[in-house]
Amino acid sequence: LTVQLGNLEWHFDNPEQALKMAEELAKRYQLKVEIDNGTLKFK
């Protein structure tokens, strides 16, 4: 699973870790998370 923020990307083997990080980033920057083809992206 990949977490993508702008041109930064983090790759996780563990989806739970990816979701946890995505939630933290979304909270911190007040963004919405969307999943696009196995990639978590922020809007």
Rank of each mutant, 00 (worst) to 15 (best):
L1H: 06
L1Q: 04
L1N: 04
L1C: 14
T2W: 08
T2D: 04
T2K: 11
V3G: 02
Q4I: 14
Q4R: 12
Q4H: 07
Q4W: 07
Q4T: 09
L5E: 01
L5Q: 02
L5R: 01
L5K: 02
L5S: 03
G6M: 06
G6P: 03
G6F: 07
N7M: 12
N7Y: 12
N7H: 13
N7R: 14
N7K: 14
L8R: 15
L8W: 15
L8F: 13
E9Y: 14
E9P: 03
W10E: 00
W10S: 01
W10I: 08
W10N: 01
H11G: 02
F12K: 01
F12Y: 07
F12G: 01
F12Q: 00
F12D: 00
D13M: 08
D13N: 11
D13Q: 10
N14R: 09
N14Y: 07
N14A: 07
P15D: 06
P15A: 12
E16P: 04
E16V: 13
E16G: 09
Q17F: 10
Q17V: 11
Q17P: 05
A18G: 07
A18S: 02
A18K: 00
L19S: 04
K20Q: 10
K20R: 13
K20S: 08
M21I: 09
M21D: 02
M21C: 15
M21F: 15
A22T: 03
A22P: 00
E23Y: 15
E23K: 12
L25V: 05
L25I: 14
A26L: 06
A26R: 05
K27S: 09
K27W: 09
K27V: 07
R28C: 13
R28V: 05
Y29T: 02
Y29I: 03
Y29W: 09
Q30A: 10
Q30W: 10
Q30S: 10
Q30N: 15
Q30G: 15
Q30C: 15
L31G: 02
K32F: 10
K32Q: 12
K32R: 11
K32T: 14
V33K: 00
V33E: 00
V33Q: 02
E34V: 15
E34M: 13
I35S: 05
N37T: 04
N37K: 08
G38H: 08
G38A: 06
G38I: 04
T39N: 05
T39W: 10
L40E: 00
L40N: 00
L40R: 01
K41P: 01
K41I: 12
F42E: 01
K43I: 14
K43M: 10
K43S: 12
K43V: 14
